[in-house]
Nucleic acid binder design. Structure first.
Lengths: 246, 246
DNA sequence: TGCCACCTTCCATTCAATGGTAGAACGTGT
DNA sequence: ACACGTTCTACCATTGAATGGAAGGTGGCA
C-alpha cells in the first residue's frame, strides 16, 4: 500500500475516471464510478474532488458525478474536428435543403466510423448515427466510404483483423463492398442499418488527396435517386475539401 | 527538486495541459504547450506522451499536440448538456423554420452565458454566439434571460461583483436590464453585440421551475416583430421544459 | 430505533513523479 | 557543406505527493 498498489499512474486513473461513463450516461454515483474505474473508493473520492475543483468533473450533492461543463467547453472549443466541421457545415446545410434528407459527417477512428456532425430532417427517416456515436465500418455507408479510400496497407490490416461478431459477414464480402465503393467513388448500403432506410456516402479529401472524412445521407429506401444524390454529395465533398486546403 | 517543485498535483498539471489551448486553437507545439501550461519541458513531454497513449491527446509528428478525438468522443457522448440539447433540438428546429432566423441555446456558467447549441440560418444576420463560446451576461440577451430568472441571492452576488472592463455600463444599468427582463419574461438587446442585429431570449425552466437555460434568436435590427417572436420562443421554451421534466 | 449503504476524512508508508542535464534530430541561414 | 539555434527525446538520482485501509459521518428505509 503506497503510491499505487495496482501499478498505474495518476494519468491512467484520470483517464479511467473519464472513460468510466457508459455511452449516453451523464451521471454516476461515486461508488459506481470507483467500481467502473477499478479504483479504491477513497482514491476515487480524492480524484473526483480534485477534478471537480478544476471543473473537469462536476460532483453534485450526495456523491453524484458528471463530466464538467468546463471540460465540455474546452474540448468543443479546441476540438480536433473543429476545422473539418466548420468547413463542412455550410455544405451539409445545402445538402439538407436541396435533397431534403438527413446528412452526416464521419471520420475514421480505429476500425469504426465516428460521426462528428449531423443534420437531421424532421419527418424524414430515422438516422441511427448520433453525434459522437460510432458504427462499424462494414455496416455504415460512411465507414465503407472512408475505408475504401484508405491506403492499400490500411485496408489490408483492416481486412486482416476483420471479424463479424454475428458471423453473418465474411471478410471476403467486405472486401467486395470496399472494392465496389472504391471503384464507384461512393458507398451505399440498403436496408442494412434499418430495414427501410438507405445510406449513401462519399469520401471527403483534403488538399493532399488524403481521405479525411465521409459525407453521407440517409434516405427512405423507396427514394433511390442515385443519379441525383451522388453528384450532389460529391460536389459538396469537393467543396469541403477545397475549404480544408485553404 | 522532487515530486513537484512547484507544489501542484498531477491532476493540476493535466488540467493545465488541457486548458493550455487558446480558444479555437486545435494544435500546439510541445514547447509552446509547456510554456502555456507553466511546466518544465521534460515534464510536459512526459505528460503529453502519457495522455496521448490513452487518446486524450493526439501528438503528431514533430511535437505538435492536439486534443484527442477520443476525448472529444467521450465528452460529447456523456456531455452534461446532452439531455438539455436533445430536449431542445426539435424545438430549435421549429423556431428556425417558422421564424426563419438564427437560434441558440445557452446555460449560465460563472457570470457568463455559455452557448451549448446553435442553428444558424444561411443568409441571415451574423450570429456572434459560437457553440462552446461565451458571452458576458450583460451584453447578451441569453445572459440576461438566464440571470434575470436566477434566485435573488445569485443576482445580488452577480451585481455585487459586476464591473464593466470598458467602464461604459454600471451595475445600476444592469440591475435595470435584469428587472425589465424579469418583469417581461424575456430579455432583449438591440445593436449591442452587433450594431445591426437584435437579440432576444427567454428562460427555459425545468420541472422544478428552475431556470436551466435560455433560448434565443438573433434577427436583423429592421425586423422588430416582438409580437411574433416572443410567443413563439416562450412556447418552445415551455415545450423544452416539459421534455426535461419527463 | 437499528440497520445498511454510501460518502467523507485521516494519516503513516513508500514508490511514482519530477526536472536538470545531455544529446539527438531538425531546420535555416551563410 | 557547415555551423548554429531551436525543438524534441531520453536518462536517472532524489523525495514529497499519492495512496488506501480504517474509522467516523450521514441519510434512507423498514
Amino acid at each position: 500500500m503506497a503510491n499505487s498498489a495496482s501499478g498505474d499512474s495518476v494519468v491512467d486513473r484520470v483517464v479511467r475516471v473519464i472513460e468510466a461513463f457508459p455511452e449516453g450516461v451523464t451521471s454516476l454515483q461515486l461508488t459506481e464510478l470507483a467500481d467502473r474505474a477499478g479504483l479504491p473508493l477513497s482514491s476515487a473520492h480524492r480524484l473526483v474532488r480534485q477534478l471537480s475543483e478544476h471543473g473537469l468533473l462536476d460532483s453534485g450533492a450526495g456523491g453524484t458525478v458528471r463530466l464538467g461543463l468546463r471540460l465540455w467547453e474546452l474540448v468543443n472549443r479546441n476540438s480536433p474536428t473543429l476545422a473539418l466541421r466548420q468547413a463542412a457545415m455550410p455544405f451539409m446545410e445545402d445538402i439538407q435543403q436541396v435533397l431534403n434528407q438527413n446528412v452526416n459527417l464521419a471520420v475514421l477512428e480505429g476500425w469504426e466510423a465516428l460521426f462528428v456532425e449531423r443534420l437531421s430532417r424532421r419527418g424524414s427517416v430515422a438516422n441511427r448515427a448520433r453525434v459522437a456515436g460510432r458504427m462499424p465500418v462494414h455496416i455504415s455507408s460512411a465507414g465503407l466510404a472512408l475505408m475504401s479510400h484508405q491506403p492499400r496497407e490500411v485496408q489490408a490490416e483492416y481486412l486482416e483483423q476483420f471479424q463479424d461478431p454475428s458471423g453473418k459477414v465474411t471478410a471476403g464480402v467486405v472486401r467486395q463492398l470496399l472494392a465496389d465503393a472504391a471503384q464507384q467513388g461512393y458507398a451505399q448500403l440498403a436496408g442494412v442499418v434499418d430495414s427501410d432506410t438507405w445510406g449513401i456516402a462519399v469520401p471527403v479529401m483534403n488538399g493532399k488527396r488524403r481521405t479525411v472524412a465521409a459525407l453521407g445521407v440517409v434516405v427512405p429506401l423507396a427514394e433511390m435517386r442515385l443519379q441525383a444524390l451522388v453528384p450532389a454529395l460529391q460536389t459538396a465533398a469537393r467543396g469541403i475539401g477545397r475549404r480544408l486546403a485553404e
